[in-house]
């Protein structure tokens, strides 16, 4: 496993050096003048963001401000909506994700995603986790076993499910299902995890567990988390971007955003005057 991981990283660094020698070493995503339309509806306007490695970046903003659209653009899931048009550049590790040769399957293997509603497959817990690796060609039962255990441990749910790996995932509680989905996402060994309001369907205790998990995962992954809960952004993130009507109003250290925002609109939103 370790050798595989090293080669993977090495390849990526190679690619980075070849394509984008100027890019800062620790930037995972560089978003450059991104615009997105749903038909005639201009949903993202000139978005520029620089997302760093091994940080938690929170995206906040009122409903309909484009934060979910933005995060779904990062792994091109947004293109499942047929009327979407984009222009601009998103560089992931120095490669433009909109390049013709950049297959979405490849991108989505290194950028995992956790959704708003827990969405396990109607399969056993084991098969849920093993799904990703199997899709990418892992057949060896021993390796699969190891991936399943490591992913479930990584998502802090191993102890709760280790005795019932063959039971249907729908028997788990909502919070457990969401952590299972996080584990499923870890199983494809991504570098980035996108989380689209991962706790909005969960009770407070499950929310707390997921937040603690995000803190843990930061060591090994870059995390981008959309949340409508400002306290959550303040608790878990290093940087925060405030979106309003499809624009990035402010992007800065979370401490600064919450203590001393430079834009009046950010201040109004943070202090609960709207949104």
């Amino acid at each position: 496993m370790d050798t595989k991981l090293t080669t993977k990283t090495a390849e990526k660094e190679g690619a980075t050096i070849m394509n984008q020698p100027v890019a800062a070493q620790d930037s995972v995503y560089r978003v450059d003048n991104l615009n997105l339309w749903y038909g005639d509806d201009h949903a993202l306007k000139d978005v520029n963001l620089d997302i760093k490695q091994n940080e938690v970046t929170a995206i906040i903003g009122p409903s309909g401000c484009g934060k979910s659209t933005f995060i779904k653009t990062l792994n091109r899931m947004v293109e499942l909506v047929p009327i979407v048009r984009t222009n601009g550049v998103i560089e992931y590790n120095g490669r433009n994700i909109f390049d013709k040769e950049y297959e979405v399957e490849e991108l989505r293997t290194s950028v995992g995603m956790v959704f708003q509603q827990p969405n396990p497959f109607p399969k056993s817990i084991y098969d849920n986790i093993a799904y990703g690796p199997r899709v990418h060609g892992v057949k060896n039962k021993k390796i699969l076993d190891e991936i399943v255990e490591r992913s479930l441990r990584g998502a802090a749910i191993w102890d709760e499910v280790k005795d019932r790996l063959n039971e249907n995932a729908y028997g788990l509680s909502g919070g457990q299902q969401q952590r299972l989905c996080i584990a499923r996402c870890l199983a494809i060994e991504p570098d980035v995890i996108l989380m689209d309001e991962p706790t909005s369907a969960l009770d407070p205790i499950s929310t707390l567990k997921v937040e603690e998990l995000v803190q843990d995962l930061k060591k090994d992954y870059s995390i981008i988390i959309v949340t409508h809960n400002m306290q959550q952004a303040a608790r878990v993130s290093d940087k925060t971007a405030f979106f309003l009507n499809g624009e990035v109003v402010e992007f800065d250290q979370t401490d600064r955003i919450f203590s001393n925002p430079s834009d009046k609109r950010t201040e109004d939103y943070i202090s609960g005057r709207f949104g």
């Binding site: 899931m77 499942l80 959704f115 969405n119 799904y131 989905c181």
Partner: peptide
């Protein structure tokens, strides 16, 4: 749709999603 999205977001192709998730379900 959430099932299809879950599979696609893991890097599965459309056919893998259809054959391994949609069809069994």
């Amino acid at each position: 749709q959430a099932m299809r999205h879950a599979s696609l977001a893991l890097g599965a192709s459309k056919w893998q999603t259809t054959f391994k998730v949609v069809l069994p379900a």
